[in-house]
Amino acid sequence: MFRLVALLSGFIFGMGMMVSGMVNPAKVIGFLDVFGQWDPSLAFVMGGALLIFVPGYFLAIRQQQQPILADQFCLPQTRKIDKKLISGALLFGIGWGLAGLCPGPAVTAIGSGALPISLFVISMLVGMRLVNLFNTSSNRTVAAER
């Protein structure tokens, strides 16, 4: 049941990305170009998503002891703003601004077969792997120093 709900959720998410235009890099770059010919339409997409998410999130957290299809909620354990968070946010923002894509819409758009989107997703996966390798080796170094 969990996998079916995950598949359905991913399908709905992907359809929303396509209908809203978030898989179109030109539309995203138009949204990010606040000092040029700014396209505010994606602000409405994000606002609409927040109007649904925020009340649902707080309702679920307050009303339920655990999720319907999982043993527990997977919530962040810290609210600390550190170098890792800031550098990740900067990298994400720079990538989004340069490519006009972020991971969700990029994975959705890979079905288009467009070479730039495929290269973006491949680069994203390589970057994720490198970060994972770096974090693993950093953790080993810290453990060895103890």
Rank of each mutant, 00 (worst) to 15 (best):
V45G: 01
R79G: 15
F73W: 15
G56Y: 13
T108G: 00
L50K: 05
C74H: 07
T108R: 00
V34D: 07
P55W: 04
L91S: 06
L69E: 11
P67A: 05
T108F: 01
I81H: 05
A70P: 05
G36K: 11
P103H: 02
V45W: 08
A49Q: 04
L51I: 12
L75Q: 09
D71K: 10
L51P: 07
R62L: 15
T78K: 13
L32Y: 02
V45M: 08
G104V: 03
R79I: 14
D71R: 11
L85N: 13
S87M: 08
L101D: 00
L69D: 15
I61T: 03
L50I: 06
K83A: 12
G48K: 09
L51K: 04
F58N: 09
P40Y: 14
P105C: 03
A49M: 09
T78E: 15
D71S: 14
K80Q: 10
A109E: 00
W38E: 04
F73D: 12
A109W: 00
Q63C: 13
L69C: 07
I86V: 15
A106C: 07
L90S: 07
S87C: 13
I52H: 04
G47V: 08
G95Q: 01
P76R: 06
A43Y: 07
Q66L: 03
A109F: 00
V34Y: 13
D71I: 06
G56Q: 13
Q65A: 09
P67V: 11
C74F: 00
I68R: 11
G47Q: 10
I86C: 08
L101Q: 02
Q63F: 14
I110L: 15
L32S: 08
L51N: 06
K80Y: 00
I68C: 06
V34F: 15
G47H: 11
Q64G: 02
Q77E: 15
Y57K: 08
Q65P: 03
L85G: 11
Y57F: 15
D39E: 14
A60M: 11
V107H: 01
I110S: 11
L69K: 09
T78W: 05
G97E: 04
G56S: 12
P76L: 05
A89I: 12
S87I: 13
F92E: 10
P76K: 07
P40N: 15
L91A: 14
A70Y: 02
V34A: 12
G47C: 11
A89E: 03
L42C: 04
L32G: 05
I68H: 07
I86Y: 12
L75E: 07
L51W: 03
L32N: 04
T108A: 09
Q77Y: 04
Q37I: 10
I81A: 08
A99W: 03
Q64L: 13
I94L: 15
S41I: 01
T78N: 12
F53P: 14
P103Q: 04
K83L: 13
W38Q: 06
F35S: 05
L85I: 14
